[in-house]
Structures are given as structure tokens and as C-alpha cells.
Amino acid sequence: MARRRLSVPAMVSSTLKYLVLMAAGVWMLLPFFWMFSASLMTSQEVTRLPPPLLPAIPQWHNYIDVARVVPLVRSYFNSLLVTGLTVAGLLFTSSLCGFAFAKYDFPGRNVLFLLVLASMMIPFFVTLIPVFYIVKQLGWLNNYAGLILPGVVSAYGIFLMRQFILDIPDELIDAARIDGASEFRIYWQIILPLSGPALATLGSFNFISTWNSFLWPLLVVQSRELFTVPLALNSLRTYGMEAQFHHLQMAGTAVSVIPAMIVFIALQRYFVKGIALTGLKG
């Protein structure tokens, strides 16, 4: 294809466009740049006036030092465990329930489905105090159950899975039944593998929100052994408000943001779709 020659106004507008993009890009990256840069500085460097842009010698040991101040390794493990189990549980309950709503006829189905739709309209904060009380009564405060179980259901997840499974042809299910497959086996071996894209959308979305969640763990967890990554960050924040601790704070922050970014970059396509679909919540 022959290259189209640009007229002068077109060239001006094109240059302008990239300039605006570049400025926006600097704005977007600035906090991340500062986070990484400051995380490698010495305590003197972060409090120097004016502050340097880059560390003279990268202090990689900051990343080890920060793990001594707060239980970062342990909270990483906790966060991975809590997030992994929450996402797995959520995908399981949502797909199983969505499957039943999409492909079975049973008395009370529509009443139950209305219940799900109604739950989608309820914001998290309205139920916060009662859920805390229920979790407390069940003896789940300050243990993994309290961190994980309230998160393993999502009305929105059920709705999303139902919509997706509706489009899976009934013939596949009937054929499996003729071959003598049990109903659960139909779910496990036919529905689940065919629901990949919906599961990826729901899963990536939920991974990031659970990984980043702060208020709920703040309420449920008291002991440091159960800290999730945001709680460790918060304790790092209150450990040293003064500027001479900024390098440690930023090292902790840098470590904390990595998993969500990996999931996002790997599953970007599904994640973006998930964002567009959250409109169903409103």
C-alpha cells in the first residue's frame, strides 16, 4: 500500500496527538516510576532536598529490609491462598448455579432467580456490619474462613454464567445423558470446559478485586500471621509515616502491585470485557 503523504495541518494534528498522549503517559506512569525509584533509594536520599529522581546506587536490599519490618512473605502467601480459594469458590458456585438456572426446570426457579437479580442491586457497604456480625457469630473472625467464605458468592457472577451457559446447545447435554452421564458429570465435563471465556472474565476480574480488597480484611483479621498484602502495606504505612521510611513503603508497595498486574496483562482481553459487563450491576 502506498504511503499517503500527510498535509501540513494533518502533520500538525498528528504531532499534537502524540504530544498529548505522551503527556498523559507521563502522568500515568509517574507514580509507578517514583515507586520503583524510591524503593531503591537510601533513607537519606528520600529525605534529601530536593529529592533526587533516581537512586545513586540501587539499594536492592530494601526489598529484604521491608520484609523484616512487616510480615511481607507471610502476607503474600496469605493473599495468594485467600485470593486463589475465593476465585475458585466463586467460579464453582457461580457456574454451578448459573448452569441450573440456564438448563433446568424446577419449581421455584424464577423466584430464586429474582432473588439473585435483587442481590445484584445491593452495594457491599449496606451489608458490611451484619456480615461482620454473622462471621463473628460463626467463629470465623481472625481466620481464613472469615476472609474467604463471604467472597465465594456473587450474584453478578451467577447472572453472567447463566447468560453464557444459555447459549450452549441443549443437544450436547441430551447426547451426554443418552450416553449415561450423571448430571454433575455433564456440568464438570461439558459445561465447565465450554464456559472458558466467561470463567476467565469473571475469574480475572475477581482475582484483582480480591487481591486488592482492603476494608474487609481490615475488619476480619487481627493477628499479623493472617495479614493479607494490603494489610501488610497498611501496617507499613502506619509503621513509618515520616519521610525517612518512604523507601521502605515504596518497596512494599512495588511488591504488592505485581500479581494483579501479571493477571491483568495476561488476561487483559477478558478483564476488559468484565469491566464492560459490570454495568449489569447498576
Binding site: A24, M28, L29, P31, F32, W34, M35, I208, W211, N212, F214, V229, P230, L233, N234, R237, Q249, M250, T253, S256, V257, A260, M261, V263, F264, Q268, F271, V272, I275
Partner: peptide
């Protein structure tokens, strides 16, 4: 443009 959305609000607040 999407990086901040997947970053924990707590972490962004600290940055």
C-alpha cells in the same frame, strides 16, 4: 491507562 485500575487503591493512595 489501565494500570492504575488494577492497582490496589490503598497502594495508589500511598504512592
Amino acid at each position: 491507562f489501565f494500570l492504575p485500575i488494577v492497582t490496589a487503591p490503598l497502594a495508589l493512595g500511598m504512592m
